[in-house]
């Protein structure tokens, strides 16, 4: 009985709704129009957030790159001065080279390493989960803590693990962080190590997605495991590889935490040999208070990221 009376009341509610102008408008929409209304209702907050927190500052940075500003005083237009200054700044070109060194060394090394690990780990059944967790652990660890631990590893005898190890076999000491040639690879190593776990997981997911029968068919055809790797596994992993190349390239182009924390007493040192673009921007903006110049550097970084990503997507895209 209660249910019946409930049904009887519902139309009256609807009538009240329909009398209201906005509700009548909504009521008259088609189903797909209603879905659009709801989609925008849910999207409104993130869109607003993105506009205020992302797009507005980005646009502002573009404008700022043509201005002079010390963070407190008035802004004044400077035309292309910031870019001209950047072009003539030897430190910028040094930093530019460093950034590309991080990219050119970091991306291929980390990809090859993570693929080799994933390829073999995929075949291991013994303690599979534990080993995978061990590889993933660095990815979850704070970059700051990790950088400091590695910094400690790199110390000379008797503190540093690596040098102690070398010394116990009678090898000479290696200047890891204090040499202008060794510092960049030394900083890069923990950065690669930190990202490895993530890449291994993604590669393994990609490997798992390849049907087992492809390998069985190849076994029946009797082709070598080398052929299987190069002609079946890697081509089929292409979407995974594209994703990881783009993802890790962006990561290495934006490298900051490891460098900053491993060279705190002289950020980006020695002699700017480890300084990446992001650290230069940070330095210009918050130590030099040269906001316009920093904005110009940011625009350059943005452009590099955009171009590198587009080139990679183009090269690796499926025909």
């Amino acid at each position: 009985m209660r249910r019946a009376s409930g049904f009887a009341r519902a139309p009256r509610h609807l009538e009240v709704w329909q009398r209201n102008g906005a509700m009548r408008f909504y009521h008259n929409l088609t189903i797909s129009q209603k879905q659009i209304v709801w989609a925008w209702a849910f999207l409104a907050l993130p869109v607003l957030f993105y506009v205020v927190i992302r797009f507005y500052p980005t646009a502002n940075a573009f404008v700022l790159s043509f201005q002079e500003w010390n963070l407190l005083g008035a802004r004044s237009f400077a035309g292309f001065d910031n870019y001209v200054r950047l072009y003539n700044d030897p430190v910028f070109w040094k930093v530019f080279r460093n950034t590309f060194m991080y990219l050119i060394l970091g991306t291929p090394i980390s990809l090859v390493l993570s693929f080799v690990i994933a390829y073999h780990l995929d075949k291991v059944r013994f303690m599979h989960g534990t080993i995978r967790a061990l590889y993933f652990l660095p990815f979850m660890t704070s970059a700051v803590a990790m950088a400091w631990v590695w910094r400690w590893f790199y110390q000379p005898v008797p503190i540093g693990v690596f040098n102690n190890f070398l010394a116990s076999f009678g090898f000479s000491q290696i200047q890891f962080l204090s040499s202008t040639t060794n510092a960049l690879p030394s900083v890069l190593a923990p950065a690669i190590w930190a990202g490895l776990g993530f890449q291994v997981i993604i590669f393994m997911a990609g490997l798992r997605a390849i049907p087992q029968s492809y390998y069985e068919a190849a076994r029946i055809d009797g082709v070598s495991s080398w052929t299987v790797l190069w002609e079946i596994t890697i081509p089929l992993l292409k979407p995974t590889i594209v994703f990881l190349v783009v993802f890790s390239s962006i990561g290495f182009l934006r490298i900051f935490d490891q460098v900053y924390n491993m060279t705190t007493n002289n950020p980006g040192g020695p002699l700017n040999s480890t300084k990446p673009l992001v650290l230069l921007i940070y330095d210009t903006a918050f130590n030099g208070f040269n906001m316009g110049y920093a904005a110009a550097q940011t625009v350059v970084l943005f452009t590099i990221l955009l171009i590198v990503s587009l080139i990679q997507l183009r090269i690796l895209r499926d025909r």
Binding site: P211, S213, Y214, E216, A217, R219, I220, D221, G222, E231, I232, P235, L236
Partner: peptide, 16 residues
């Protein structure tokens, strides 16, 4: 398998 002089057609075809 390659030495058995057989060939197999799989349920999901296994064509690349």
């Amino acid at each position: 398998p390659k030495d058995r002089d057989i060939a197999m057609v799989f349920q999901n075809y296994a064509i690349y």
